[in-house]
Design a protein around this nucleic acid. Structure first.
Lengths: 144, 144
DNA sequence: TTTAATTAAGATAAATTTGTCTTAATTGGA
DNA sequence: TCCAATTAAGACAAATTTATCTTAATTAAA
């Protein structure tokens, strides 16, 4: 489905959003411990997203990552597309490049409908939403 | 979504099913040319599926692969699971291992519904179906 | 029976994804 | 001002997926 990198990214972004409300920068050690990822790897991933404007970062003592109110309005779909591209939301069910309305594969119509539903779920899930959601279920994002 | 290997497998199985009606064994050269895959790679993939009983194979002159009526009743979902496992049909939308009814991730309910719909599409698409479908649109499976 | 055509199988290689290391740059506080 | 803590960046390494090579076994036909 999503790449591992993308799953890490989603969980990290949710974690950072959840903790950007009242506090200062969140560092990669804390993030990686809470989402169950390699520390330096999630650093790399967030650096990339930061370059693309998905979150703030600052170096030095008490540095780390932060998501402001504006960025918290972004959806999970934006993050998925930034990392994995839109193939997961647009691709064909049997992997055909040319598959389209004009030239549909055998499961095109049904598949497109389901795929669009998936896209809708990620599009309507904003980081903001998770900020309130967190209050009832802390420590959710660790993988196991 | 699906691995490349799995996409090749689906297209190859559909192709072989379509051509197993009236003719003899179909060889990997023909298959790879028609689905747009590396010849030896699709050989490997079909060998694996053949070991698992998804299709017949025979060596030697005029050898190749063949899908009989019984195997043609299998669904695309069976093939996907044989190759990629069921993660694509069962996995969590943000990649959490523990995610479940009791311990749902934030998008669990909606995501599960959409994922189940996808599963249904692959489950209800049998190889058999493609045999008649092919008559109207030949040469469909080549990737581009 | 010999030969050509084919899959089987295991080893190898290439490409991609995932993860780590090292050094540099930056920041805040003592 | 100096130090400790942090991200930035690029090189490197490991793991996984995708693809190829080589040899063997099998089969049908000439």
């Amino acid at each position: 489905m999503l790449s591992k990198t993308c799953e890490y990214a989603l969980r990290a972004m949710i974690y950072v959003a959840q903790h950007s409300k009242s506090r200062n920068m969140i560092n990669i050690k804390e993030i990686s411990e809470n989402i169950g990822s390699p520390e330096l790897f999630i650093g790399k991933i967030l650096q990339g997203l930061s370059r693309q404007g998905f979150l703030q970062s600052s170096k030095g003592r008490y540095g780390g990552f932060f998501i402001d109110e504006k960025n918290a309005k972004r959806s999970l779909a934006d993050i998925v597309i930034a990392i994995d591209g839109d193939k997961v939301f647009k691709g064909c069910g049997v992997g055909l490049n040319y598959c389209s309305e004009k030239n549909p594969c055998p499961i095109h119509d049904q598949y497109k409908k389901a795929r669009t539903a998936i896209y809708g779920i990620y599009r309507s899930a904003t980081l903001e939403q998770f900020q309130t959601w967190e209050e009832s279920s802390p420590l959710l994002l660790k993988r196991e």
